[in-house]
Amino acid sequence: VRQEELAAARAALHDLMTGKRVATVQKDGRRVEFTATSVSDLKKYIAELEVQTGM
């Protein structure tokens, strides 16, 4: 499950970095929206997932 969450989070980051205004991911069973202003929060979430998956 964590691998899927990590892939979704990375895709969301890619979307935001390429101009999409809002990206949505499932985080702990709930839907979370990230915007360009919350990229740093999304990067932290990705880092947490990488630690949890041993990457």
Rank of each mutant, 00 (worst) to 15 (best):
Q52P: 06
D28T: 03
A47I: 09
S38E: 15
M55I: 14
T18Q: 09
R31Q: 13
G54M: 07
E33W: 07
T53C: 09
V25K: 02
D15R: 08
K20E: 06
T37G: 12
R2A: 15
D15H: 07
G54L: 07
H14I: 10
R21H: 11
S40I: 10
V25H: 02
A36E: 08
S40H: 12
V32E: 05
S40G: 15
V51N: 13
V39S: 04
L6A: 02
A11G: 06
V22W: 06
V32N: 03
A12R: 02
A23S: 05
R2G: 11
T24Y: 15
R31K: 11
R30K: 15
T37R: 07
A47Y: 12
A23F: 02
F34R: 01
K20T: 08
R30G: 06
V39N: 01
G54Y: 05
L49P: 00
K27N: 04
L16I: 08
E48Y: 15
S40E: 15
R10Y: 13
H14K: 08
L16H: 00
E50L: 07
A12F: 03
Q26C: 15
E50H: 04
T35K: 04
K44L: 10
Q26S: 10
G29I: 01
E48G: 05
R10T: 05
A23W: 01
A36W: 15
H14F: 09
E4N: 12
Y45W: 15
A12C: 03
T35V: 05
Q3P: 09
K44W: 06
T24G: 06
L49S: 01
G54A: 07
D41T: 07
Q3F: 14
E4Q: 13
V1C: 13
M55L: 12
K27L: 13
T35H: 06
A23T: 08
A8V: 08
S40T: 10
T18R: 12
A9V: 03
A9K: 01
V32L: 11
M55F: 06
E5N: 07
R10Q: 06
Q26H: 11
H14S: 07
A8C: 14
E4L: 14
L42K: 00
K43I: 14
E5I: 12
T53R: 07
V1Y: 13
K27I: 15
E50M: 09
S40F: 05
M55S: 12
R2M: 12
E5K: 07
V39M: 15
E50A: 06
E50N: 04
V51T: 12
G54P: 04
V25T: 04
K43R: 13
V1L: 14
H14E: 08
A8W: 10
T24L: 07
K20W: 03
K43F: 10
A36Y: 13
A23N: 02
D15E: 13
S38T: 14
L16R: 01
A11K: 14
D15Y: 05
T37M: 11
A9T: 02
T37D: 15
R31L: 15
G19K: 03
A47D: 06
E4G: 13
G29H: 04
A36P: 08
V32W: 09
T35F: 09
G54K: 08
A36L: 15
R2W: 14
G54D: 11
E50T: 06
A7C: 10
G29Q: 04
A36Q: 14
E33V: 10
V25S: 02
D28W: 00
I46W: 01
A47V: 07
V51F: 14
A8K: 08
I46Q: 00
I46P: 00
M55G: 12
V22L: 08
A11T: 08
T35G: 05
A47Q: 11
A9F: 06
E33H: 07
I46K: 00
T37Q: 14
Q52G: 09
D41G: 06
S40N: 14
G29P: 01
Q26M: 15
V39T: 05
R10F: 05
A8M: 13
K43D: 03
R2L: 15
D41E: 14
A9S: 03
H14G: 05
V39R: 03
V51K: 13
G19L: 02
E33A: 05
K27Y: 05
M55N: 12
E50P: 00
K44N: 09
L49T: 01
E5M: 12
A47P: 00
T37S: 14
E5P: 07
H14Y: 12
F34T: 01
R30Q: 12
A9I: 04
G19R: 02
R2T: 10
K43V: 13
Q52S: 11
D41H: 06
I46H: 00
A8Q: 12
Y45D: 00
Q3T: 12
T24E: 09
E33Q: 09
E4H: 14
G54T: 06
A7M: 12
F34D: 01
V1P: 14
L13K: 00
M17T: 06
D41M: 10
D15G: 05
T35I: 04
F34Y: 15
A11W: 04
L6M: 05
R10H: 06
D28G: 09
V22H: 07
D15P: 00
R21D: 12
E4S: 13
T18F: 07
Y45Q: 02
L6N: 01
D28I: 02
I46S: 00
V1M: 12
K44Q: 11
K43L: 14
T35M: 05
K44G: 05
A36K: 10
G29F: 03
T24W: 07
Y45C: 04
T35L: 06
R21G: 10
R21Q: 13
L6T: 01
L42S: 00
R21V: 11
D15S: 09
K27E: 03
R2I: 13
K20M: 11
L16V: 03
G54R: 09
A8N: 09
H14C: 12
V25E: 02
E33S: 07
E5T: 10
A36N: 08
K43T: 06
E4W: 15
L13V: 02
K44H: 07
T53N: 14
M55T: 13
T18W: 07
M17L: 13
A47C: 10
L42P: 00
V39F: 06
A8S: 12
V51M: 14
G19P: 01
H14P: 00
A36F: 12
L6I: 05
R10I: 10
K44Y: 06
A11N: 09
S38W: 03
T53Q: 11
A9G: 02
S40R: 08
T53H: 10
V1S: 14
V32C: 07
D41P: 02
R2D: 09
K44T: 11
Q52T: 10
Q26A: 07
T35R: 04
L6G: 01
Q52M: 14
E33T: 09
T53D: 09
K20P: 02
E5L: 14
E50D: 04
A11P: 00
E4A: 15
T24S: 12
L42G: 00
T18N: 14
E48T: 07
G29C: 04
F34S: 01
A47K: 11
A23D: 02
D15M: 11
G19S: 03
G19D: 04
T53P: 07
A23E: 03
D41L: 11
E50R: 04
D28Q: 06
S38M: 15
R31W: 15
L6Q: 01
G29A: 03
T24M: 10
R30P: 02
A11Y: 04
K44S: 09
L13Q: 01
D15C: 10
V51D: 12
A7G: 05
A8I: 11
T18P: 00
V51W: 13
G29D: 04
A9C: 06
E4V: 12
T53S: 13
Q26D: 09
V51A: 15
L42W: 01
A11L: 11
E4M: 15
A7L: 12
L49F: 02
K27Q: 10
D15K: 11
R31A: 14
A11H: 08
A12D: 01
A47F: 12
